[in-house]
Amino acid sequence: MRSLVDDLVRTPPPRSTIALAAVAAVLLALAAFVSAPSSVPRCTPIGPPTHLDRTPLPSSDPIGITVGSIDACSSLLAVGVDAQKRIEVPSVHTPEQAGWYRLGPTPGELGPAVVVGHVNGDGRDGVFADLDDVERGDRIAVSRRDGRTASFTVTDVVQADKDAFPTTAVYGDTRDAQLRLITCGGALDRSAHRYDDNVIVFASYDGWSRNP
């Protein structure tokens, strides 16, 4: 059985075949270009903490966050609440930017520290575009102003209706240092440009390293 390549080489290719091959080559090149970022990590890899100690750290504002398994990383913008007491998020026009909820604990401190990030915005993937791919056991690192990088291990990933948001589970007091990552998910209301659900990652603090 002759291969496709044989066909192309042995028979004088008609012009249309050449054109097709050219377009195919361009497409292949494009595909390679588009898929390249997933093979070359954008974020600095994170390892296990050098100081394995679950004792909560003192308060220190966070600087940046990395979720290793989905190659997501961002600096952290401090966000609060709006007039309706809803949590603020970084501008949808900068979907790559994650935000830390400043009216709660700092990551590594006792309690539930909260980080929000867009799934998408302005036609681009957001920092947490792949947050629903995060699995239990995945590692999250948050660098802090005090020179420590707090390390967290994912304990749970849930998807919840925004109208039945698990407020207590997310924002309620905890007995150790915790981290929650929040983004959008579920069905999209196209007219309102709004998702019905939130994807929430729950993680537990398990130690720290010096900032890289």
């Binding site: 998408n120 957001g126 947490f128 575009a129 007091d173």
Partner: peptide, 21 residues
Amino acid sequence: RPDQVTVVPEGGAETGDGSTE
């Protein structure tokens, strides 16, 4: 009452406009 989070936000977070759907 919870006090680790000083202001507990209401509801979920608006984190996407669906523009890459």
